[in-house]
Nucleic acid binder design. Sequence first.
RNA 1: GCGCCCGUAGCUCAGUUGGAUAGAGCAUCAGGCUUCGAACCUGAGGGUCGGGAGUUCGAAUCUCUCCGGGCGCGCCA
Length: 592
Amino acid sequence: MKEELQDLLLAAVRSLEGSVLPTPVDPAVVTVERARDAQHGDFASNVAMRLAKGAGTNPRALAERIIAALPTNALITRTEVAGAGFINFTLARDLYAREIVRVHDLGDAYGRHVPAMPRKVLLEFVSANPTGPMHVGHGRQAAFGDALGRLLAAAGDAVTREYYINDAGRQTEILAVSVWLRYLERCGEQLPFPSNGYRGDYLRPLGDALHARAGDTLRHPAATVMAALPADAGVAGGDKEAHIDALIARCRTLIGEAAWQDLLRDSIAAMMDGIRDDLEGFGVRFDHWVSERAFAESGAIDRALGRLRERDLLYMKDGAEWFRATQFGDDEDRVVVRDNGVKTYFASDIAYHLDKRERGYDQLIDVLGADHHGYVTRVRGGLQAFGHPGDCLEAPLIQLVALYRNGEKVSMGKREANFVTLRQLREEVGNDACRIFFLMRSNDQSLDFDLELAKSKSNENPVFYVQYAHARVASVMKELAARGFGWDAARARATVLARGAELLSGPHAEAMLAALSRYPEVVRQAAAQRAPHAMVHYLRELATTLHAFYNAERVLVPDEALREARIYALLAVQQALRNGLDILGASAPESM
RNA sequence: GCGCCCGUAGCUCAGUUGGAUAGAGCAUCAGGCUUCGAACCUGAGGGUCGGGAGUUCGAAUCUCUCCGGGCGCGCCA
């Protein structure tokens, strides 16, 4: 609807080029917007104000010229110059009736855009380290990434979802040694748990499982394990990093390299199984699971570093090898190979993002926690070093989540024993409420998640409000059958095409249909802005118009044509609600 | 100190590439069920858009500056 009008306006402006308008006009300035106030018609354009100065005329006069130049059409019933030079458009009422028919004809595809050449987008999100269960912060990233993926796909992008498994760093060794310590406890050894280890109870079952599998073969006396280790934090002169590194080394020598590798692999696999279960239970799916370890073993990181060396973008200093990140806008150069010969995480990320581009993706999107914001510039710099445009990588940052129960903040901490996992949250409030609460705020707004509100049934809870609207329509259909009325969708379609504007008149019907017709625009806009929360807000508005209509007008009236038209309209709104809820990853129940 | 995010109604937040009288929910107040789901609806009150300056036909939106809050600044991942 909006695009058709925009095309007409562009044709009008084009026809004035060379006469009234001096230079070729950038099509991007020829836009229409939904009128905020019904008095201003359906759409408004500020194009005359934007072009007046260049044309050496005043906006209102130019607006008149543009209106006069509009091609003849069946869309616009009225135009008006208003205010400083706005052009207001009132559209034919039967356009809205036709839009309902479009909704029915397209069904689940309503609102989907299908470009000739879809952009290939690689969407990476969550990528939580396999060192523990997913917590609520990962949950927000999962909800956002998944909804963004669905949104971009609806807007016409070819989206691939990828999870990067950080299975190659020091944190995996800390995980493995933590499991081993739980195993030793299971064997009956008594020893202090390192402050830098993963202390959560979730590792106890792994220790138990290891004991069931290996018996006492990996057991060593606590005194042997702890002999001559550097002091842990909390002790005078203690250093938690030195302590845990020594503990890892001790474990490796005591149990042997083969057993150590098994322990590493099994621990990571167990954590990843848990994460996969969480994501699946949350309704979040990935196309690719990329192992950092496998990626490194393929030699890709070394190849990328080699290519940087050829371009003279690496140099040696203080025994380490540095990337000239400052050439690409970073504050300082960054180390890629440490003086001990170990490559940094940054080195693997350069190579990994380069690999993404070389796999043929046009746009790379990394959904990151807000604490990673300092990282984006340097990874982008890495891409630019290989000649890729800096803006091919974007990184929506997800701000923190704080849980509240009865007005009190619930404390969280990853390595503490009592943190709130995504699973616990989902089990308490349900997937739908969980997802929509994560999505209802802009991603760069920190989120206060009110557990009581998420479970409540009130207007303040958008989940119930929107789902109720959907269920209400289903309920009308049940009542329709119960009262012995027939229903023939094809006949309703014909009725609406012939008499829709007349039958669906009145402020509530018109408001509802106007809101409905915005759905395709919302999909496009929300996708362009990477803003799933815009869909949440829109669905609430659409539901409001449905509830208002329902309260104002009786649906199951004796007049057959009127009854059919109203039902047909409600079903169309229901379809849009369903499509929108699907983009958010929430269900659209028939009854509640 | 530097960087990023945030500051809008009593509370929680929307606000489109800069547009017309800044919106929604909650809370408060006043109404609406013998009839399709009242988990709903109708109406009212409530604002120095953190302060100041600038850009222009026009600023919550862009620029600068100050104030307040959060996060990040490693040869960790």
